[in-house]
């Protein structure tokens, strides 16, 4: 008897655990994976990237890139040839028009989803790519367009790469290689090639990221030297060739001293010169709506009981901000 009545309780606990692990949102949806479809789409993407970079694409390079055996790749490539998505060209593999559209569609899904994760969720930056790699294969066109509309039809992913339009348009790579700059030029990193991985990692480890501003010094002994955010950096020629730079329009150049807003204490004033890229999405917009834009004067007005948050006087209004926000707002002293 007792055990019979324990069932409802058990049921309740199950419901709770179900909620805990279900992660019901679309963004964490686990998929029934169709591995053949995924492999084909990965191949298309990979071929597209090879063509984009003008490098040779064949079975071997694909199997290395996708971490599969030659046989696996060959069988999928055969199927893709049957479906007229790719065509063999001597020893190389090339995309047909329909294959290129397909590849761009997958790239669009990938970048849209990364943008979604960046703007609309709290998912850690490191997980964006991996989640998008899964998600891109499981989206219908309608779902993708709904997603795009929901996040304001973005045209750039959070890494600064352009998102192909629904019709498969993509802007040409702008800018020039870092190594082609003239001494004294000021520019912004707009693209870091993520292949090969070891070079990408070594670039990233030197603190170079998309959007960082650099002042070019010159090339000495095959070493490319420049200031990045006022820090002296040097890269090998090979590394520098994997970085594209350009003067992004509307981008503000800040060279010179700046401090974080969090460094001010009660009564001190400053003038905002920028907001870090890592404050993004709704959070960034809300701060700007409240008047936290470059050029605004700001004064620390009040300290809360525990010292965080602080209240700031901004354009005649008192607004409380947390330290993890003010660390990402740059100011110059007044």
């Amino acid at each position: 008897m007792i055990y019979l009545l324990l069932i409802p309780l058990f049921f309740l606990i199950i419901i709770f655990i179900f909620f805990l692990f279900k992660k019901g949102k679309v963004l964490f949806r686990k998929f029934k994976t169709n591995s053949e479809k995924i492999l084909q789409e990965d191949i298309l993407k990979s071929v597209y990237n090879h063509q984009y970079q003008n490098s040779v694409c064949n079975i071997e390079s694909l199997s290395e890139k996708l971490n599969k055996t030659n046989q696996q790749i060959q069988s999928s490539v055969d199927k893709l040839i049957d479906s007229k998505h790719i065509e063999p060209d001597n020893k190389e593999i090339r995309l047909t028009d329909s294959g290129k559209n397909y590849a761009l569609k997958i790239i669009r899904f990938h970048r849209l989803y990364e943008k979604f994760l960046a703007d609309k969720t709290n998912v850690n930056e490191k997980k964006w790519h991996q989640l998008a790699e899964e998600f891109e294969h499981n989206l219908t066109n309608e779902e993708a367009e709904k997603l795009a509309a929901q996040i304001g039809n973005p045209v750039f992913d959070p890494h600064g790469d352009p998102i192909p339009s629904p019709k498969g348009e993509l802007p040409e790579v702008k800018g020039m290689r870092l190594s082609e700059l003239n001494p004294g030029d000021i520019s912004v990193v707009i693209h870091i090639e993520d292949e090969p991985d070891n070079i990408y990692q070594s670039i990233v480890n030197k603190g170079i990221y998309n959007g960082i501003q650099i002042r070019f010094l010159g090339t000495f002994n095959n070493e490319v030297s420049f200031y990045a955010n006022e820090k002296l950096c040097s890269l090998s020629l090979e590394e520098a060739n994997n970085i594209n730079v350009g003067l992004l329009k509307l981008e503000k150049i800040h060279l010179g001293d700046f401090k974080k807003l969090s460094s001010l204490s009660v009564g001190q004033r400053g003038k905002i010169i920028g907001i870090a890229k890592s404050l993004r999405g709704q959070q960034r917009r809300r701060l700007m709506d409240l008047g936290i834009v470059p050029g605004t004067e700001i004064e620390v007005e009040l300290e809360s009981m525990s010292g965080d948050p602080l209240a700031y006087k901004i354009r005649g209004t008192t607004i409380a901000l947390r330290k993890n926000q003010t660390e990402k707002i740059y100011i110059e002293s007044l």
């Binding site: 996040i151 304001g152 709704q282 917009r285 809300r286 700007m288 709506d289 409240l290």
Partner: peptide
């Protein structure tokens, strides 16, 4: 609203 440009 503070603005009319956001997505909220």
């Amino acid at each position: 609203t503070y603005s009319l440009l956001s997505t909220s």
